[in-house]
């Protein structure tokens, strides 16, 4: 039962990942691209957790944690760059 649920969730997040890629390719502004990248990071975390769940390993949690932190910092850096033209003043 869990196996099929994991497949279902992985399909959902994989489709979501493809939608984010599509949005990055076709967005008309920079803001939308940054938003799509941020969503893509979150979807990547979900896919990693699902892979760890399917294989019964815990090594991916640290990786997911690091990706979550890096995603947040990079989104903030992109937003700063859009607002001010540079990141660290």
């Amino acid at each position: 039962m869990i196996e099929y649920a994991v497949y279902f969730a992985a399909t959902c997040f994989g489709l979501a990942f493809l939608m984010n890629l599509w949005k990055i390719a076709t967005a008309e502004g920079v803001g939308d691209r940054v938003l799509a990248l941020d969503t893509m990071v979150i979807n990547a975390i979900a896919l990693m957790i699902l892979y760890g769940l399917a294989n019964g390993t815990e090594i991916f949690f640290e990786a997911a944690m690091i990706i979550a932190m890096l995603g947040f910092v990079s989104t903030v850096a992109y937003a700063r760059f859009m607002l001010r033209g540079n990141i660290i003043e």
Binding site: M1, I2, A5, A9, A16, L35, L50
Partner: peptide
């Protein structure tokens, strides 16, 4: 199973809304 299915649907809806 319930958490996985609900989470997957929420993730799909979020990116579809984008």
């Amino acid at each position: 199973t319930v958490f996985l299915v609900v989470g997957g649907i929420f993730g799909l809806v979020g990116s579809f809304g984008l």
